[in-house]
């Protein structure tokens, strides 16, 4: 991980002096070869998903596997293509905050509407 932490001292500066702005620019981006590898893995995972759809397997097995493959694809794109693995933690927090909020809000909505509908 190439995360860069921001200490309080970095932001406020020392002895009342001017704020020292840390450089948060990414220090590393994947190489072209890594990007192509991730693209190939994404293609294979998508092929696996479609194969699972056509495989004559019980939904109780298929659905968790499909969800796991989707999460794997999601994480690959977010960490490598969107560079969250290498970028500032601040950016990561915005994405996770949005996803956690959405997850909580809409899970509650689905449960409540489901209960109301009987």
């Amino acid at each position: 991980m190439a995360d860069t932490e921001i200490s309080e001292q970095d932001v406020t500066g020392q002895e009342g002096g001017p704020a020292q702005v840390p450089s948060e620019e990414p220090t590393h981006h994947p190489s072209v070869g890594e990007y192509v590898e991730i693209g190939a893995i994404l293609a294979v995972l998508t092929a696996l998903e479609v194969a699972l759809y056509y495989a004559n397997i019980a939904p109780s097995i298929t659905i968790p596997m499909l969800i796991a493959l989707t999460i794997a694809k999601f994480i690959l794109v977010v960490l490598w293509f969107m560079h969250l693995r290498f970028d500032s933690k601040v950016f990561r927090r915005f994405l996770w905050a949005g996803m956690v909020l959405a997850g909580l809000l809409y899970t509650a909505a689905i449960v409540l509407v489901g209960i109301a509908a009987g």
């Binding site: 704020a19 702005v21 450089s23 948060e24 601040v90 959405a102 997850g103 809409y106």
Partner: peptide, 29 residues
């Protein structure tokens, strides 16, 4: 740059993406 040393535009894009999670979450739900 923001006071964190981050690019304003990039920070703005991530805030937008965070809000879009809620936007699409509503339609998926």
């Amino acid at each position: 740059e923001t006071s964190l040393g981050l690019s304003n535009e990039k920070l703005g894009m991530w805030v937008f993406i965070g809000s879009e999670c809620l936007f699409f979450g509503a339609f998926i739900a």
